[in-house]
Structure formats: C-alpha cells, structure tokens
Simulated assay, not measured.
Amino acid sequence: MSDNGLSRRQYLSTVGGTAVTVSLAGCFGGGGGDGGATEITAGTAPGFPPFEMKQDGELVGFDIDLLEAVVDETDYTLAGWEEFEFKSLIPALTNENIDVVAAGMTINDERDETIDFTDPYYSSNQAIVVREDGDFSPESMSDLSGRPIGAQKGTTGESTVQSELIEPGNLDESNYNSYGNYVLAVEDLQNGNIDAVVIDEPVAQTFAAQRPVTIAFTYETGENFGFGVREGDDEFTQALNDGLSTVRDGNTYQDLTNKWFGQQ
C-alpha cells in the first residue's frame, strides 16, 4: 500500500442496479443531532472485501470504517448508507440519491469527467486469481488469451480485460463474463465456469485467504482509490480532505489498515 498523500489533481496528472436502502436520509439534508450539522448519505457496493461487505447482515469493511472516521472529523453528520451495484454508484451520486461514494473506486480521467474525488486514500494493482487446485497457472496477461475470464461490471478489472485483452484481439468478447459483484465472480471461478478473475490486489488477497483460490500474478496499474463526490461540492470535498488528513496524521488510519489488511 502506498501512503503518498497526492491530491486528486496531482494524481490525475500522473446504471442499472437497484439501491437497497440501509438508512433513509435526505442528501445534504437539514440539521442533524450534532447541533444542526448537515446530514449526508453515503453509498457503497458490498461484495468487495475487505473494503465493503456484509457480515451477519451488517455492512462492514475498511471503506465503511474509514469514511465514518473521516466524517467524524468534519462538521457533517453521516445519516446512513445505501447499497448499490458498483456501476450504479456514480448515477446515484449525480442524481443526488447519495452524497459520497465509498467503494474502493479508482480515480481516473473517465470518472473525473462526471464526478470529483477526494484525495487518494489507498493504492492498488490488479491481481489475476485462479483456482487453487486447478491446472491453469498464467504468468502474464497474454496467457489469458482464449480463456473464459471474469470481472465485476464497471470496475478497473473490467477495464483491464477490455484494454489488455479484448481490444487488442487477444480475447473474444464471448469469453468475457461480467458480474454484479466479485463474490459471484469468484464463486463462478470455484465452480469451474471461468478460469480466472481480474480483481484489485487487496480484495484478491482476502478471497485467497478465505476460499480455494490463489493469485497467479499481479498486473501493475498503480491505481489510487478516492471517495467520490459531486462536481461543484467543493466545500464538502475540502471537508472530507481535511478529515482524511486528520485521520492519517493520527493513529486511526493505521489502526484500520491493521484491522482490515493485517500489519502494513
């Protein structure tokens, strides 16, 4: 993990799902319980452990804990969370159904045309995951040619499959399988319906620790995750950046990485 503290602008120099309401709250609603603090609603996409997932019906994960800690350092109040498929998060944000996205979302130029991001809070590469007891052991992207491959809709993993395999003609589009979340993709991998899944490295490590799958190799992409916010919400974005800086400067950020990823 890289703790580089890059601003969003410095870094950039380098719909279809149904929401499940966890807690109803008007976006940028009226005063909350903290002396009239502005209430906000966060959106995420469970099925991306350890960033966001469901345990015994409860929404948990690194992003959940981190955003809550960040908001606690601001004059805003987090009124609740709503759950979406990943590809529906940006439409939910721009339609003002939620006020911030916390979902392991990579900062990139395409998304930045529609929304803004906070400063990065986590760095990642893509990992290629295969069955632990299988006979397929790819060592590079070219080894995936002709194989049934999976990724989650709207993610960088899907973009990597498209740009590195399908567009160059190394993989027929019929061999690519997209999923609403990575739990379904890994289950299909375990069942032998696909031969590999392209997924963010820390998430791949979590699946490998819990299921009979393994990381065959890592494809370096140098991605940075940020919280997604609406364009023009500059005051809110600055508040989140200030809160993130405070959380990083104290022990909270390291405590959360230790909790969800082990000692860093």
Rank of each mutant, 00 (worst) to 15 (best):
N97D: 13
N97G: 10
V100D: 12
V100G: 10
A102Q: 07
A102T: 03
A103R: 07
G104F: 02
M105A: 14
M105Q: 15
T106L: 04
I107D: 12
N108R: 11
D109L: 05
D109K: 09
D109A: 14
T114N: 08
D116E: 13
D116K: 09
T118G: 14
Y122F: 14
Y122P: 01
S123Y: 13
Q126H: 08
Q126Y: 05
A127T: 11
A127S: 15
A127G: 15
V129Y: 04
V129Q: 05
V130F: 09
R131W: 11
D133A: 14
F136I: 12
S137N: 15
P138W: 03
S140M: 06
M141P: 06
M141N: 06
M141H: 06
M141I: 15
S145Y: 02
G146L: 07
P148Y: 11
I149F: 11
A151W: 02
A151G: 13
K153G: 12
S159G: 11
I166A: 06
I166N: 08
E167N: 04
E167D: 14
N170F: 05
N170I: 00
D172M: 10
D172E: 13
E173T: 09
N175K: 12
Y176W: 07
N177K: 14
N177R: 14
Y179H: 15
G180Q: 05
N181V: 03
Y182T: 09
V183Q: 01
L184S: 11
V186Q: 12
E187H: 01
L189Q: 08
N193T: 10
N193F: 02
I194V: 15
I194M: 09
V197P: 04
V197R: 05
V198L: 04
V198M: 08
D200W: 02
D200Y: 06
E201T: 09
P202W: 09
Q205N: 12
Q205M: 07
Q205A: 12
A208K: 04
P212K: 09
P212C: 06
V213C: 12
A216T: 09
F217N: 06
F217P: 06
Y219A: 03
Y219K: 10
E220I: 06
T221R: 13
E223I: 01
N224R: 12
N224G: 02
F225Y: 10
F225P: 00
F227N: 00
F227D: 01
V229S: 08
E231V: 00
D233L: 03
D234H: 05
E235M: 10
E235C: 03
F236E: 02
F236K: 03
T237W: 00
A239T: 01
N241W: 09
N241G: 07
G243T: 07
